[in-house]
C-alpha cells in the first residue's frame, strides 16, 4: 500500500488593492479547484493573523507554498509568524514577467487574460506541489 500523499497548502496574497494580489488568488483557486484538487488546499490568510488553532496547525503540519502579490510578502511572513516553514515562495509578478503576452488586469478579480495567466502559473506551481507531496524539496 502506497504512502498517503500529504496535503500541500497554497496560500495566496489577501490584498484587494493590486492586480497581482488578484492573480495570486486566482492561481491558488485554479490549483485547489481544478489542477490539484484534494492535494492542494488553502486556508484564509487572516486566520493566521488571529492565530486560529486549526489554520496554524494546517500550515505547521504540512508543506506550504505562498504566492504573494507584492514585495511586502504578507503570505510568506504570516506563515513564518506562526512557526510555519515556507517550502516555496512565489511573487505573482514572476509569472507575468515570464509571459508578457498575458497581461492581467483587475483588482478584486482578474480579467480573462489574467485567468489564462493563472492557468499557466498554476501548472508551474503544480509541479512544486507534486514534489512536496512526494516528500521532495522539504
Amino acid at each position: 500500500m502506497g504512502k498517503k500523499p500529504k496535503q500541500v497548502v497554497v496560500l495566496p496574497c489577501s490584498g484587494i488593492g493590486k492586480t497581482f494580489g488578484a492573480l495570486a488568488r486566482e492561481t491558488a483557486y485554479e490549483l485547489v479547484e481544478r489542477v490539484r484538487p484534494g492535494l492542494a488546499t488553502l486556508t484564509c490568510l487572516p486566520l493566521l493573523v488571529i492565530n486560529d488553532p486549526e489554520a496554524v496547525a494546517l500550515v505547521t503540519e504540512n508543506p506550504v507554498i505562498t504566492i504573494d502579490g507584492c514585495p511586502k510578502d504578507c503570505a510568506k511572513k504570516s506563515v513564518e509568524a506562526v512557526g510555519g516553514r515556507v517550502a516555496k515562495a512565489y511573487e505573482a509578478i514572476k509569472f507575468y514577467k515570464e509571459h508578457k503576452d498575458l497581461k492581467p488586469e483587475g483588482i478584486a478579480e482578474v480579467n480573462d487574460t489574467g485567468r489564462k495567466l493563472a492557468q499557466v502559473a498554476a501548472a508551474e506551481v503544480a509541479r512544486e506541489v507534486d514534489k512536496l507531496a512526494a516528500g521532495e524539496g522539504e
Binding site: C13, S14, G15, I16, G17, G21, L45, P46, L48, V49, K72, D73, C74, A75, K77, S78, A81, I107, A108, E109
Partner: peptide, 25 residues
C-alpha cells in the same frame, strides 16, 4: 472583497483600505 472594493472605487475620496495581513507583515 468585491463589496469592499466596490465601495473603495465608488468613494475614493472618503475611503482607504489596508491588506489585513499587513498588521503583521
Amino acid at each position: 472583497r468585491l463589496a469592499c472594493r466596490k465601495v473603495l472605487d465608488e468613494r475614493p475620496g472618503e475611503t482607504v483600505t489596508i491588506c489585513l495581513p499587513l498588521f503583521i507583515a
